[in-house]
Structure formats: structure tokens, C-alpha cells
């Protein structure tokens, strides 16, 4: 199937929504061509504001616009959105619970050659630590479009985690998306693969490999990291073994969220797949996924080792 980067889908979705919702304004910090807000900018130049390389001001301005009834989408790379402007998001957006959407692209290590400074592996942890924030990490172009629409409809701050690198399109247009609801993509009984974003595709691949070896794996797409779908996770945990997979640090993101739910409500065997508390580095996306142990193969191995303990 065609590979499309989620940021591309974001750009298109914004331009479409801009037609319907006149209150949408889009802000960027000199990266509109990369974040694809340029698509919106071309169509609605009067509702687009480029604030230059100044991310803190980007978030503050978005907050101000939101107090006047606008629905601002603020975009830049994930490292700058969540890192450089963390305090502004906390104080000016989350605390007053303002209707600002932060759509950050270039998340994860698949940013590739730009290296550690540009590879955001902490963004979900940072955004999840903020009260009032909704955190969404879509899988593919189809889910991204639906998530952008859902974010626009939702009242309150939303963080959308988007990627730079083209990814396989998994869903078709009939796919139903609801904020905060996990989606079982494949049923299974031996082990549950709970994944988000780019790792959903890897998990589906892993499940196929496991099936060949007689292991029946369930695959759950947790696109909303916060609020987390406890019900879906508890249901998945009935398999007795859970693997979480994310293109993010194992600290603070999906893995932590799932661990927190399960240890308190339904302790089962868990293994977290993700970046193991180290920084990223330059390389081709596929190479990096291999180097950091976040491929389908790693999921397969983790599943096998978890089950053999049993």
C-alpha cells in the first residue's frame, strides 16, 4: 500500500477543515513546509501566522488567540514544541484549559539523519505529565485525518504526535476513530501487543510471524495515550501477557501508561518495547529502528521470551 507520512495527512486535513470551521487558525514557527501547515497557509493566508523561529512565542500567541474564540493549531517539530516551549504549554495552555491544538511533526527517531537533538523520544512523556492535555499518536494517514478532525471538535488542549517519515497506510476510510478508545485490530489469546503510532504496523507484522509459530497474538491500537483506554487494556491483559510498543522512550509514554494501569488493576507479565532511556542518533529510519530494537522482529522475540517464562 502507498506510504504516506502522517504530517502530509495533517496538512491536507487542516486545509479541508479550514473550509468548514472558520475559527481555525494555524500557527507555525518557520517550519511550515516541513510540518505541512503550508497547505493551509496557501488556502487561507489570512488565517495563517508564521511566528518565526520562536516556539515559546508560538505557544503563547496560540493561547491568546484561543481566549478570543479561535481554534489555533500550532505546529513545529516535536522536540521544539514539547521541549523548548514546555512551560508555555503548561502555564499558558493547559492550566487555563485553552482550546489549543499542538500538532507536532518529526516525532520519534525515524526523523532519521538529523540526529539526537531533533529526535523527540520524550514528547509523550512530557505532554502526558500535563493535566488537561489529550495526547494522540496516530498510526497512518487515514487515522491522522480523523484525529485532526476529532481534535478540532474536542474542546481543550490536544497534542497530536506526527511523523516525518512515510508510513504504510493500514486503515481505509471506513475506519472509525474515537478519542480515548483503543481499537482491537486483531484478536488473539496468547499475548497482547499494545502499540501506538508507527509501532502498530510493526506489531501487526509481528503478529503474523507469531501466528506462523502457533502463537495467537492480539493487536491493540492505542492511539490516545491520554486519557488512556483502561477498559481496552484490561481486556487485552486477559491474554496473560502484554507487550507495549512505541517509537518513544519506555519512560513516560505508552509503556508507562499501560504499566500503571495493569500493576494497579490487573497485574500480568509485561514487556515494554521502546527506546531504552538513551538518546537517538543519525541514521536511516529503518536502520535506527533496528539499532534501537523496535522492529517487528524485536516484538516477536519479546513475545516469545515472555511466554516461555510462563
Amino acid at each position: 500500500m502507498a506510504k504516506i507520512a502522517t504530517r502530509e495527512a495533517y496538512g491536507e486535513a487542516l486545509a479541508e477543515l479550514g473550509e468548514e470551521m472558520k475559527d481555525i487558525v494555524v500557527l507555525d514557527a518557520d517550519l511550515s513546509k516541513s510540518t505541512k501547515t503550508s497547505v493551509f497557509a496557501k488556502k487561507f493566508p489570512e488565517r495563517f501566522f508564521n511566528l518565526g523561529i520562536a516556539e515559546q512565542n508560538l505557544m503563547g500567541t496560540a493561547a491568546g488567540l484561543a481566549t478570543c474564540g479561535k481554534i489555533p493549531f500550532a505546529s513545529t517539530f516535536a522536540v521544539f514544541a514539547c521541549g523548548r516551549a514546555f512551560e508555555q504549554i503548561r502555564n499558558s495552555i493547559c492550566y487555563p484549559n485553552l482550546n489549543v491544538k499542538i500538532a507536532a511533526t518529526h516525532a520519534g527517531i525515524t526523523v532519521g539523519e538529523d540526529g539526537a537533538t531533533h529526535q523527540s523520544i520524550e514528547d509523550m512523556a512530557l505532554m502526558r505529565s500535563l493535566p488537561n492535555m489529550t495526547v494522540i499518536s496516530p498510526v497512518d494517514a487515514v487515522e491522522t485525518k480523523k484525529a485532526v478532525r476529532a481534535a478540532a471538535m474536542l474542546k481543550g488542549p490536544v497534542y497530536l504526535r506526527l511523523g516525518r517519515h512515510p508510513v504504510e497506510t493500514i486503515f481505509d476510510d471506513n475506519y472509525e476513530f474515537e478519542v480515548g478508545k483503543g481499537v482491537v485490530l486483531r484478536d488473539g489469546k496468547d499475548v497482547a501487543l499494545i502499540a501506538t503510532g508507527t509501532m502498530v504496523g510493526e506489531s501487526l507484522r509481528a503478529a503474523e510471524v507469531l501466528a506462523k509459530e502457533g502463537i495467537d497474538a492480539m493487536v491493540v491500537n492505542i492511539h490516545t495515550i491520554k486519557p488512556i483506554d483502561e477498559e481496552a487494556i484490561l481486556k487485552a491483559a486477559e491474554c496473560g501477557a502484554v507487550i507495549t510498543a512505541e517509537e518513544h522512550s519506555i519512560i513516560g509514554g505508552l509503556g508507562s501508561a499501560v504499566a500503571e494501569v495493569l500493576i494497579e488493576k490487573k497485574p500480568v507479565l509485561i514487556k515494554r518495547i521502546g527506546i531504552r532511556d538513551v538518546f537517538g542518533m543519525s541514521g536511516k529510519p529503518e536502520e535506527l529502528m533496528k539499532a534501537y530494537g523496535i522492529t517487528a522482529e524485536d516484538i516477536v522475540n519479546a513475545a516469545k521470551s515472555l511466554l516461555s517464562i510462563d
Binding site: 512565542n57 503563547g60 481566549t67 508555555q88 499558558s92
Partner: peptide, 23 residues
Amino acid sequence: DMTTGSLGQGLSAANGMAIAGKL
């Protein structure tokens, strides 16, 4: 009109309000 307290953040928010007014 705006939550503040962490220094340096107010002018940005005011900018947003002024831009909205123009818009």
C-alpha cells in the same frame, strides 16, 4: 483575561489577542 505568573509569557498571549482582534 489571561493566566500568568511565569514571567515573560504575557506579551505573547497579548499578541494572540491583538491578532485575533485584527482578524
